[in-house]
Amino acid sequence: MSDASPVTPSKARLLERVPGLIGALSASPFALLMLFGFVAPLLCVVWFGFMPSKTFSLLQTPTLENYATIFNQTYFKSILWSLGLAAVTVVILLVICFPLAFAMAKIFKGAASFITYAIATSLFVSENIRLFGWVIGFMKRGVVGGTLETWFGLQTDSLLYNIPVIILGMVYVYLPFMLFPLVLGVKMVPDQVREAAFDLGASRWQVFKKIDLPLSMPGVMIGSLLVFVLSVGAISEAKILGGQKVVTIASDIESEFTYAQNWPLGSALSTMFIALTTVVVFFALSRFDLEKLLGKKPAE
């Protein structure tokens, strides 16, 4: 035993003496990474937002001129576009994914893991490539257009560069982020509770409304939140599929940094955008915790 060598109090014994030190110590590499790779850069962005226009230095007198510019120009339009597209994406994905998640959690057996692998694999392919597939599908004389023309005699122009296609792209890219939390959520609904509701006279619709939906709410919330946050910051869908039809906040920010070379304005836009998403995330996260969702709440 360690008591046999009482000459120097070893590091291990310090760990025994201070309760919780081992936990804090294990968390520290991650905490340092987040401090220098996440928190500091974000503070940097916030600070840059107060710098005068078109500078690349952080050491100027702070000013609010960038925010004045944002409110005087039409940036609110792109914010609204981003929020609107994200909200529509969330709603469409909820409608598409819930039946599938239900079937995967409650009806399918072996097929459920096949679908999981089939959908999950897509997460590892760059979304650009997958969106490019739609471009080939929808471009003039692409796979869809060519098929319609050759076999159905329908002349079509390019089906790209409109709002429904952008939404399609977002729905497509973020489907896994809605589906998997929903499957987890629906799995949390105990079979006997559903049966009991049927047994007490509830119809299928009533069971859905009063049992399935409320009890799988953690999954619904996490899925919606993930999809909302990811799609509100989406950049490729609108660019690749939408041409210049719609300018989202993310592409506004990007062009301030690239073409316009106005970092302070880009930073101010980012700050507003971050504040908006943080409010949404914190509001939603405060209403449940993930350990409950995983069903692994250990005793504290």
Partner: peptide
């Protein structure tokens, strides 16, 4: 089951 005038108390009780 939802059309039958019968009702069951489950082993797990299945309370909501």
């Amino acid at each position: 089951p939802n059309k039958r005038p019968t009702c069951m108390v489950f082993q797990s009780l299945a309370l909501f």
